[in-house]
Simulated assay, not measured.
Amino acid sequence: MLLFLSCLPLTAQTAKLDALFAELLTADEAASQRVEADIWLEWSKSGSAAMDLLLQRGRDAMANGQPEIAIEHLTALIDHAPGFAEGWNARATAYYQTGDFGPSIADIGQVLTLNPRHFGALSGLGSIFEELGKPAQALEVYKAALAIHPHASGVNEAVQRLEAQLQGSDL
Score class of each variant (00 low, 15 high):
residue 103 P to Q: 07
residue 82 P to K: 00
residue 129 F to N: 14
residue 87 G to Q: 03
residue 52 D to V: 15
residue 54 L to N: 10
residue 124 G to D: 06
residue 73 H to E: 14
residue 110 Q to F: 04
residue 60 D to K: 11
residue 70 A to M: 06
residue 53 L to H: 10
residue 49 A to L: 11
residue 131 E to R: 11
residue 61 A to Y: 04
residue 73 H to I: 05
residue 72 E to Q: 14
residue 130 E to S: 11
residue 98 T to G: 02
residue 79 D to K: 09
residue 63 A to M: 07
residue 82 P to E: 02
residue 134 K to E: 11
residue 82 P to V: 04
residue 126 G to V: 06
residue 93 T to H: 07
residue 64 N to G: 13
residue 56 Q to V: 14
residue 59 R to T: 11
residue 115 N to W: 05
residue 125 L to V: 07
residue 123 S to R: 07
residue 110 Q to E: 15
residue 106 A to Q: 09
residue 109 G to I: 04
residue 103 P to E: 07
residue 96 Y to F: 15
residue 85 A to S: 13
residue 47 G to Y: 05
residue 53 L to D: 13
residue 72 E to I: 15
residue 114 L to Y: 07
residue 57 R to K: 13
residue 79 D to Q: 14
residue 106 A to T: 14
residue 47 G to W: 02
residue 112 L to H: 09
residue 115 N to Y: 06
residue 107 D to I: 05
residue 102 G to Q: 10
residue 95 Y to N: 14
residue 81 A to E: 12
residue 122 L to G: 09
residue 122 L to H: 03
residue 75 T to E: 00
residue 103 P to S: 05
residue 61 A to M: 04
residue 51 M to I: 15
residue 90 A to P: 12
residue 75 T to M: 00
residue 48 S to W: 06
residue 114 L to T: 09
residue 92 A to W: 02
residue 92 A to S: 12
residue 97 Q to Y: 03
residue 93 T to V: 13
residue 59 R to C: 10
residue 85 A to R: 01
residue 63 A to F: 03
residue 112 L to Q: 06
residue 103 P to M: 01
residue 50 A to C: 08
residue 95 Y to F: 13
residue 60 D to Y: 08
residue 118 H to P: 04
residue 78 I to K: 00
residue 97 Q to D: 15
residue 122 L to R: 07
residue 82 P to H: 00
residue 92 A to G: 15
residue 112 L to V: 09
residue 69 I to P: 00
residue 113 T to P: 01
residue 59 R to Q: 12
residue 73 H to S: 14
residue 124 G to I: 01
residue 131 E to W: 02
residue 53 L to Y: 06
residue 124 G to S: 10
residue 84 F to H: 07
residue 81 A to M: 05
residue 62 M to R: 10
residue 119 F to E: 07
residue 123 S to C: 05
residue 56 Q to M: 11
residue 115 N to L: 09
residue 73 H to Y: 13
residue 122 L to M: 14
residue 49 A to N: 15
residue 68 E to R: 10
residue 63 A to Y: 01
residue 67 P to H: 02
residue 52 D to P: 11
residue 100 D to R: 06
residue 128 I to V: 11
residue 55 L to C: 09
residue 123 S to W: 02
residue 82 P to S: 05
residue 74 L to V: 07
residue 83 G to N: 08
residue 52 D to G: 12
residue 46 S to I: 10
residue 94 A to H: 03
residue 133 G to Y: 00
residue 74 L to K: 01
residue 92 A to Q: 02
residue 121 A to E: 04
residue 68 E to Y: 03
residue 72 E to R: 08
residue 133 G to F: 01
residue 93 T to W: 02
residue 108 I to C: 06
residue 121 A to Q: 04
residue 104 S to F: 00
residue 46 S to N: 07
residue 107 D to N: 14
residue 69 I to Q: 14
residue 83 G to T: 09
residue 82 P to G: 07
residue 86 E to T: 12
residue 67 P to A: 06
residue 76 A to P: 03
residue 96 Y to M: 11
residue 125 L to C: 01
